[in-house]
């Protein structure tokens, strides 16, 4: 699903978080939104899904303007914090969100089982969330976002707190989903994860300062270190964020 963001503005209490953002995300690719914390990544994601309204500009997903309820059925969203029900088990959380997505009850058990295998949580699917560690919650949260096989996957810092072995496994699965046609948008401030993505955009002080394929972006840097991207645009040093 192609996402088109057109001249989007957003301010919170006088502070401009997003400034005339225009961005096109091609369908069937893994797109990475890079930026320091507080740079407006999450705000942009939420505007793209229609969770919050933009002050100006427009967003369309697959040609449909957000917010749209049919569109929400094709989206899977994983928020930055876990957003799970503490008193329910992993399995019950999955079941609840599958129910909201009107997943058929027949296929649910098999789907949920398969997903929990991928995030390595099958053994403790009946554990209550309040007894889970931070990393476990993160994995269950990812499984919840995937339960209805969305065509567009929006992941806000999906692998924070996940160990390297499992992180690799998750990226492998995300690329597999991409190959099946799913569009994936992730945010991160972990630079080495960018290399796992197809395209990337750099967000800084409410502006997009670079947007290209990850290969091209790396080619622009002097030593192939993606962190250098943040130093490309020297002029923006002047407009440090106001707090």
């Amino acid at each position: 699903m192609k996402i088109e963001v057109c001249e989007v503005n957003k301010s919170f209490k006088q502070q401009q978080v997003l400034n005339q953002i225009s961005l096109t995300i091609e369908g069937g690719r893994i797109f990475c939104l890079l930026g320091a914390s507080g740079s407006g990544k999450t705000t942009l994601l939420r505007i793209m899904m229609g969770a919050i309204p933009a002050d100006g500009g427009s967003v369309t997903v697959g040609g449909i303007a957000v917010p749209n309820r049919q569109l929400l059925a094709e989206m899977g969203y994983m928020p930055q914090n876990e957003a799970l029900y503490e008193e329910l088990s992993a399995w019950e959380n999955l079941k609840f969100f599958a129910g909201l997505q009107r997943q058929s009850r027949k296929t649910f058990a098999a789907d949920a089982e398969a997903l929990l295998q991928i995030v390595d949580m099958a053994a403790c699917k009946n554990k209550l969330i309040r007894d889970c560690s931070g990393g476990m919650k993160k994995r269950i949260s990812l499984a919840v976002a995937l339960i209805h096989k969305p065509k567009l996957l929006v992941l806000d810092e999906p692998t924070v707190g996940v160990d390297p072995v499992l992180r690799r496994k998750i990226w492998l699965y995300l690329r597999q989903l991409r190959n099946e046609g799913t569009t994936i948008v992730v945010t991160t401030h972990v630079m080495d994860e960018v290399t796992q993505c197809d395209d990337a955009a750099l967000l800084r002080n409410g502006h997009i300062i670079a947007r290209d394929t990850v290969k091209n972006l790396i080619a622009q840097t002097p030593d192939g270190n993606i962190e250098e991207l943040f130093f490309i645009d020297n002029q923006s040093e002047a407009e440090a964020p106001l707090c």
Partner: peptide
């Protein structure tokens, strides 16, 4: 507060 409400509203539920 736990943002489960937002997550719930990011599904096609009315």
């Amino acid at each position: 507060f736990g943002q489960t409400l937002e997550r719930m509203l990011m599904t096609p539920i009315r």
